[in-house]
Design a protein around this nucleic acid. Structure first.
Length: 342
DNA sequence: AACCTGCTCAACCGCTGTTCG
DNA sequence: TCGAACAGCGGTTGAGCAGGT
């Protein structure tokens, strides 16, 4: 098990980087550029291999790196992209400015993947499912809908059609306050709740909006039509507002311990701590004194609409419920530490 | 207080693809 | 065409930490 060729020539240091080493690397790269990485350690006066220097720079020292927890938008996009690209972390990271493949991979493995493993469920279908869809009787219930044809990663246009994957939508439909329609066709169910809407730019005036959310949005280029085979993939296009709402609902329902309908394995446990951090990160970006109703309005408005009115529930959408919702929001906010991330 | 367990994430490993002489 | 050097990627590891007992 030999080391990388550049590491064999002389004794090199391993393990965590010291601040002094970081400083040397930063000084060298910012002054001269990295050039050939194998020569960087010698020229920068470091007892490291070039590979280690490269990794340290790319994953940690690069000035354009974003720090802190993933925003709900980023989380949603990672889930979405992973459904299409699989474990191609570098490809996924390219769509997340300031994030590294390592970061995305760690986030996935620690926060997202586990909930699927826990329930022995394949989180997303691959592209194969698009091109070789199984007949309905062979396909698992949600797999055929897990592929989102509205998310287009076209190199020609370098633009995305962004809409949540069907799995996310299904989770949303389960979790939010939607009255199920009597249909076994989930696409119909989704379409019932999300009439086709053109893709809109992300909201820029909401507290939960992440300024780095800079993916270009374009109107849908085509419709998959009514062909029966296409129908199963015909997920409506959703505005980014709805994407944000979906993630907010995922957060709120779980944080509040709300389970409006039946137990949903896709939405249970494991992701809660991390998603709490995401919400925390967004809210804590505001000065504490400004955490007012106005600032959290998007979240509150979703709370108002998505809390359960299920059979057997005594809740109704009156002021009492609104008060309870606000108490929960307050609880969430006040329970958060003042700062997050490293 | 001590120990255990699980989680996070920086760093490493080993492989593949690309470049260049 | 070939092989060495290099860049880049995904999988894995392990130190450090937090929370539970």
């Amino acid at each position: 098990m030999g080391h990388h060729s550049c590491c064999n020539k002389e004794k090199v240091k391993r393990g965590l980087w010291s601040p002094e080493e970081d400083e040397k690397l930063i000084n060298y790269v910012t002054t001269y550029g990295h050039g050939c990485w194998s020569s960087v350690p010698r020229l920068a006066g470091l007892q490291r291999c070039g590979k280690s220097c490269r990794l340290r720079w790319i994953n940690y020292l690069r000035p354009d790196l974003k720090r802190g927890s993933f925003s709900p938008q980023e989380a949603a996009l990672i889930i979405e992209l992973h459904g299409i690209l699989g474990n191609r972390w570098a490809q996924i990271a390219k769509h997340l400015p300031g994030r590294t493949d390592n970061e995305v991979k760690n986030f996935w493995n620690s926060s997202i993947k586990k909930r699927f493993i826990t329930h022995d469920v394949a989180p997303f279908a691959s592209l194969v499912d698009v091109h070789n869809p199984k007949p309905p009787e062979e396909a698992p219930d949600f797999v055929s809908l897990n592929v989102n044809p509205n998310l287009i990663l076209g190199e020609q246009r370098d633009q995305l059609y962004l809409s949540p994957s069907a799995s996310v939508l299904q989770s949303f439909v389960h979790d939010a306050d939607f009255k199920p329609i009597p249909s076994n066709d989930t696409a119909d169910l989704i379409h019932h709740h999300f009439p086709l809407t053109p893709m809109l730019p992300p909201l820029s005036n909401t507290a939960s909006f992440d300024p780095s959310w800079s993916l270009p949005f374009v109107a849908p280029q085509h419709d998959l039509g009514d062909h029966p085979q296409n129908k199963k993939y015909h997920v409506p296009n959703l505005s980014n507002e709805v994407v944000q709402d979906i993630v907010s609902d995922m957060l709120v329902n779980q944080i509040a311990g709300v389970n409006p309908y039946e137990f949903d394995p896709l939405m249970e446990t494991q992701t809660v701590p991390k998603l709490c951090e995401i919400l925390k990160g967004n809210l804590c970006n505001m000065p504490l004194t400004s955490v007012s109703l106005e600032n959290i309005d998007p979240l509150v408005s979703r709370l108002s609409s998505c809390f359960p009115i299920s059979a057997g529930s005594s809740y109704s959408q009156d002021m009492h419920v609104a008060t309870n919702q606000m108490e929960i929001v307050d609880t969430i906010i006040t329970s958060m530490p003042l700062s997050s991330s490293s």
